[in-house]
Design a protein around this nucleic acid. Structure first.
Length: 603
DNA sequence: TGTTAAGTAA
């Protein structure tokens, strides 16, 4: 490579170094080399120059060296000098901050950051207020709560707990450690000064942990206290809206952005797209997407996933092709979206093709999730043999999700004995997982093995298996209501149960037959029907029918997959009450209208 | 002789 001008001159002074230079001049030479050339020179050469000049313990040189480039080697060289040094050279906080910072920002070396922090304290170099944000960032990356608490102790000991930056990073650190969220809130509540970043960190912490109601609640408090949210706050808030299915709140965020002229970063627009897609308004997501000229892989993936969830697989595939043509390289998440789109829309050939292209053309190594998508693709399409073969030939050891996907396919396509065998194997490996027993119970129901089905309940009771309660959420008049099966905690519960009875009568007249085999309980048929009628989604629909004007759409969100009976019942409800009912379950959207579901019963 | 904090996709 040819260099000209100043660089060429420096390069020549480097290859023909002023050998006799000593002291201040040598220091200046090295510093200017490091200053001007950064990554131009081979670090090993600079290293040998430093040794030649005897500057290996010079704090200035080391600091410059460590901050010279983002190349980890530079930091490693600098840090090895410090550790190998047995001189009494005094290194100041800035040198350590530089090194800690470099390590804290490098994904694999966060331990080194802590290492240096401890070394620094050990040789009596005082940390300053700039030190802790770096150290705490490293702690956050490591997610080690005890380590974080230790550093928190030092922060207090050295009296930096009145610094807003330090406190903000403390809150963030606790948010990133498992089991740390309560500590985060304690620090947050105890801060003598707080700003938009403090609130954003805390709201973001709740949102990432799926504590979405807490995130929304804290945002409301932020509004009351008059702190202006910025685009980062709103990304976290939108993520909470997405999780809760809170479309109205999401729309409010969009109008807030316009009204308050919040900077519309790509991340913020991506979050809006994701929110609209997952709150049931995929067309709004699409139009936002079309209006963007600075799309990232996240933008594309968000709409592809959104379309997949709505069963619009062909459009998702078309968008994927448009994306690759426009020069955006697909990553592993994009492929998960694409393959999900194929499996939810019965596009077996397309799915197979893209799975192969993934490796050959796009150099994305398939992960267990991609294999899972393929098993699902075959399984849903009724190709159980292909699914089994695929699992047998997988280069990765199948996990329990793969097995459950396969079992679900067996159950749906009447490979009941195979399903039973695999489920029993799975239960022996994973005896505390409730869903394994639910699947087995459903298989026995389909086989009419009622005694076996009944005995499952005893087994579960003996093992003390925790049930994940099904719950359904609905957003009405700026409130989010949550229902669980058999819920009687709601203010209007009497009205709701009367409505349930009315719904049951009208549905029966329209030809609805309850699917009582879905009930796990050991009770008689009439009680089973009663239990089905109290499923959380039916309670939420009854509540919505009571509280919203006739003819308007009803949107509900379920935490698990919608059960077969509720799916069939909702079709009848949509017809009898002339309502569009949009259900978001764990996997996808179901849009019921006039007795038909948008998923065409393919789910 | 200087440096610091937060966010999105299955």
């Amino acid at each position: 490579m040819q260099y000209s001008g100043a660089k060429a001159k420096l390069l020549s002074s480097f290859t023909n170094p002023p050998i006799n230079t000593t002291g201040r001049a040598a220091e200046q030479t090295i510093l200017s080399l490091l200053q001007s050339c950064k990554t131009l020179f081979n670090l090993t050469q600079i290293h040998s120059q430093i040794l030649k000049f005897g500057l290996q313990n010079n704090p200035l040189v080391l600091t410059k060296f460590a901050s010279t480039s983002s190349i980890l080697n530079a930091i490693d060289y600098a840090s090895s000098f410090i550790f190998s040094s047995n001189s009494t050279t005094h290194y100041d906080s800035f040198l350590f901050n530089t090194i800690i910072r470099a390590y804290a920002f490098t994904s694999h070396s966060k331990n080194n950051a802590l290492h240096f922090y401890k070394h620094m304290v050990g040789i009596n170099v005082m940390p300053n207020k700039f030190t802790y944000p770096f150290v705490l960032k490293a702690c956050a990356g490591l997610g080690n709560l005890n380590l974080g608490k230790q550093v928190h102790g030092s922060v207090m000991k050295f009296g930096f707990d009145d610094d807003i930056h330090v406190n903000n990073t403390l809150v963030h650190m606790y948010c990133c450690c498992s089991g740390g969220i309560e500590f985060a809130r304690i620090v947050f509540d105890g801060m003598c000064k707080s700003d938009c970043v403090s609130w954003s960190v805390m709201i973001g912490g709740y949102a990432r942990l799926g504590m979405s109601s807490d995130a929304v609640e804290l945002f409301r408090k932020m509004q009351i206290e008059g702190v202006r949210p910025d685009e980062v706050t709103l990304v976290s808030l939108l993520s909470a809206c997405t999780d809760l299915g809170a479309l109205e709140l999401g729309k409010w965020v969009e109008s807030f952005i316009e009204k308050e002229k919040v900077q519309k970063s790509v991340e913020l627009r991506n979050a809006l797209i994701d929110m609209f897609a997952k709150c049931g308004n995929v067309d709004r997501a699409l139009s936002l997407f079309r209006s963007m000229s600075d799309r990232t892989i996240v933008t594309w993936t968000s709409v592809i996933v959104g379309l997949a969830m709505h069963g619009r697989g062909l459009e998702a595939v078309a968008l994927f092709n448009e994306m690759t043509k426009s020069g955006v390289a697909p990553d592993d998440v994009a492929f998960i979206g694409l393959l999900t789109a194929c499996s939810h829309s019965n596009l077996v050939d397309e799915g197979k093709t893209y799975f192969n292209l993934m490796k050959t053309e796009f150099a994305v190594v398939p992960k267990i999730e991609h294999y899972g998508c393929m098993v699902d693709l075959f399984g849903r399409a009724g190709l159980v043999k292909e699914a089994v073969q695929f699992v047998e030939n997988m280069p990765i050891k199948p996990n329990s999700i793969i097995w459950r996907t396969l079992i679900t396919a067996c159950r749906a396509h009447d490979e009941l004995h195979l399903g039973e065998t695999i489920t029993k194997k799975l239960i022996s490996k994973e005896p505390m997982q409730e869903s394994n027993y639910v699947i087995l119970s459903n298989i026995y129901a389909k086989m009419s093995h009622w005694e076996k089905k009944t005995s499952i309940r005893d087994v579960m009771g003996k093992k003390g298996i925790m049930k994940i309660p099904g719950s359904t959420m609905i957003e009405l008049d700026n409130n989010i209501y949550e229902f669980v099966a058999g819920d009687k905690t709601h203010d209007n519960y009497k009205e709701i149960y009367e409505m349930i009875d009315e719904m049951a009568r009208k549905m029966r007249r329209a030809g609805y037959v309850p699917t009582t085999t879905e009930v796990l309980l050991d009770i008689d048929e009439e009680d089973k029907e009663d239990a089905l009628n109290r499923h959380s989604e039916k309670l939420a629909i009854a509540f919505a029918l009571l509280k919203t004007p006739p003819g308007t759409s009803i949107r509900i969100m379920k935490n698990l997959r919608i059960c077969g009976d509720c799916h069939s019942a909702t079709k009848f409800i949509s017809k009898v009450y002339n309502r569009e009912i949009i259900v978001r379950d764990r996997n996808r959207f179901h849009s019921f209208r006039d007795g038909v579901c948008s998923c065409k019963d393919f789910w």
